[in-house]
Measured scan of single mutants.
Amino acid sequence: MPSETPQAEVGPTGCPHRSGPHSAKGSLEKGSPEDKEAKEPLWIRPDAPSRCTWQLGRPASESPHHHTAPAKSPKILPDILKKIGDTPMVRINKIGKKFGLKCELLAKCEFFNAGGSVKDRISLRMIEDAERDGTLKPGDTIIEPTSGNTGIGLALAAAVRGYRCIIVMPEKMSSEKVDVLRALGAEIVRTPTNARFDSPESHVGVAWRLKNEIPNSHILDQYRNASNPLAHYDTTADEILQQCDGKLDMLVASVGTGGTITGIARKLKEKCPGCRIIGVDPEGSILAEPEELNQTEQTTYEVEGIGYDFIPTVLDRTVVDKWFKSNDEEAFTFARMLIAQEGLLCGGSAGSTVAVAVKAAQELQEGQRCVVILPDSVRNYMTKFLSDRWMLQKGFLKEEDLTEKKPWWWHLRVQELGLSAPLTVLPTITCGHTIEILREKGFDQAPVVDEAGVILGMVTLGNMLSSLLAGKVQPSDQVGKVIYKQFKQIRLTDTLGRLSHILEMDHFALVV
């Protein structure tokens, strides 16, 4: 994948999101292997301009796509893939009243899908469409860049269908997702969380590099694949309309690839034109409109599966009536509230959605109805927002919020430890010299600072030695090549209790 991002070429006709291997024109390309080798690009942008032909009021008969309808489940399912879809609609009884809503608040519980998330729908649909058009064949390999849930859905379907599955996901995604993927037989590649989507090191860039190296491999490409919004247009939206008897006044959905909100909203605009569509985008993402909503100094966020630093091709923002931004604290607070007060075992993005819903639905009156999409299960986040310690460490809970008995030293300040200034190293000294210094002084790690004293990161003896043994660096290389740029900081005025929580999850903390 090139470091400079080429513009994806656009073909003359058809839909841009065809499933299957992508040609340089962004659509299915038939021909000899030699032709494909000559024409197939190194990668295709996940934010390529959409060429979708959908228009409100256009006859369904003019759609270029294969459409399906929700099917009634048999008493005995032939395999677990038949437990994807037909998820329950559940009334939220307490939270709406707590925040003064007059309307009825309903939750579409997508964590009841077989793999635990709304992404099971698009995973199965992308595979079925690729099999139907002859792209996927027995023994082929599926590769997908994902925040985890699409990966789980694909790995689940691949396990049943017999495909090899490789999932490329950023490091910030939970260990629970990784464990589930491994249990399903998927191979996992992790990428830096802070890598831009168009960087060769991003999950998108690495996935395309693997595709170019592995024979008979395919990126189904949830960011561009029409099967993504079509899955929701054909099934999720129809289920909502049936469950609500066609009567709903507002739908609120958090947005990642945009397939969920695009597919549902398009069908609702056709069948229930008075329904307002509300999009939820986390602070630090750029999906919301108008652009002024996205202006923030924050560039990272903890909530998973929603928000991006690019506009995915499948996201149709014209069908969203209003956007709201959400933050991590309210997302996790509301997710825990949904679990504790409503018994809905949902993930953090569901918290984002409901946090926005109780604001947006203030305009609705008694007798009206708001539906929220709860995308995934708490299963993926047992060591994250479900953990009091994690919430404390991230600053989303305060010590006084917890009532468990603490040891005698818990409320003492870090400054009472009488710490001395640490050994520091410059980023320009060599790895070999740094190892000598650390061994001589008896230290395992040291902060790396520039000549102005600005902290650049941390270097550890173990990481340097393993990097040297693996051949990633040489003793003569500058130590700046092996620094940890993500590390926890703590102030002298913070409590030892807070430091204790940090050290339970990290090997060190830097006192500043």
Rank of each mutant, 00 (worst) to 15 (best):
W54H: 06
P170D: 02
G185R: 05
I188G: 04
A48S: 13
E176I: 00
S73P: 13
G11N: 10
G26P: 08
E104M: 02
K247A: 12
I152K: 00
L220F: 03
P21R: 06
A69H: 06
G274H: 11
F99W: 12
S73N: 13
T235R: 02
K177M: 01
G57W: 07
V206W: 01
P145K: 04
R209A: 09
A207F: 00
P88N: 03
I142P: 01
E104A: 09
P273W: 14
G100F: 11
I240E: 00
V255K: 02
R196Y: 11
H22R: 14
K108A: 00
D221C: 06
D140G: 08
A157G: 13
T13Q: 08
D238N: 10
E37H: 08
T191Q: 00
K269M: 07
N149R: 03
R190E: 02
D238K: 10
G258D: 01
E4K: 15
F111V: 03
H66L: 09
D47T: 06
E4Y: 15
I152L: 03
K172Y: 05
I261C: 14
K177D: 00
E62Y: 14
T262E: 01
E176D: 08
P2R: 15
C15A: 10
G11V: 08
D86C: 05
E131D: 12
L42M: 10
P88G: 02
W43M: 12
C165A: 05
A226K: 10
N93T: 08
L106I: 12
T146Y: 02
L248D: 01
C52V: 04
S19H: 08
H218Q: 08
K36C: 15
T5Q: 08
D245T: 06
L42T: 11
V118N: 06
A265I: 07
P74K: 10
T146Q: 02
G100D: 15
L106Q: 08
P70R: 10
P33V: 14
Y233G: 00
G14H: 11
D86Q: 10
G246F: 02
F197A: 08
G14E: 09
S63W: 01
L136Q: 05
H67V: 11
P138A: 02
P2A: 14
C244I: 04
Q55S: 12
D79A: 03
N149E: 00
G162N: 04
G205S: 11
A159R: 13
K271C: 11
